[in-house]
């Protein structure tokens, strides 16, 4: 069933127990993103060490209000990017974006996506793609604000 495909147990687990939740210091940039169609909101901070694609993501902290998909996606984001470089993080984001916007026609690369592959079912529901991307786009925006030398996401697609 499609519905269970989207609401995988791993997504509901992240929703119930979000990883890295809460706003923390220190941080280099803070952004506030909303989904105007449903009112979901996320405030997200990034703390980087270094500059450019090799900068390390030291912390991603956030405060979010939203549905299970947007909340879980931000939790998985925290899992997947903290400790990695900005370049590696954007590789994951590019692959993730391709999957959730792919209308189910994109074969996800599990090696790159790790737990984020659980969101493959979202692609069947175009109305929910924005939910899945809210926290990730906030992250991309925060990195761009934190570092003038941040890479363009497109370079990693």
């Amino acid at each position: 069933m499609k519905l269970e495909t989207m609401y995988q147990e791993i997504i509901l687990d992240h929703y119930r127990n979000p990883h890295g939740h809460g706003l923390r210091d220190p941080f280099d940039a803070e952004v506030h993103h909303v989904n105007p169609t449903c009112g979901d909101e996320v405030t997200l901070r990034v703390h980087l060490d270094g500059s450019g694609p090799d900068a390390k993501v030291v912390d991603v902290s956030y405060d979010a209000m939203g549905c299970s998909i947007s909340q879980a996606a931000t939790s998985v984001l925290n899992d997947l990017v903290v400790g990695r470089t900005v370049g590696e993080s954007f590789d994951v984001l590019a692959e993730y974006q391709k999957m959730v916007q792919g209308r189910g026609k994109v074969e996800p690369d599990e090696d790159v996506l790790d737990d984020a592959v659980a969101f493959a079912g979202v692609a069947a529901y175009p109305a929910r793609v924005k939910c899945a991307l809210l926290g990730w786009f906030a992250f991309k925006d925060a990195v761009a604000q934190a570092d003038d030398n941040a890479p363009e996401l497109e370079e990693h697609q």
């Binding site: 069933m1 499609k2 519905l3 989207m6 609401y7 449903c38 979901d40 939203g66 549905c67 299970s68 998909i69 529901y125 929910r128 939910c131």
Partner: peptide, 12 residues
């Protein structure tokens, strides 16, 4: 239950 999630199940 967030309304978005509720509507997804209703839609199903």
């Amino acid at each position: 239950v967030h309304p978005h999630d509720a509507s997804q199940v209703l839609d199903d």
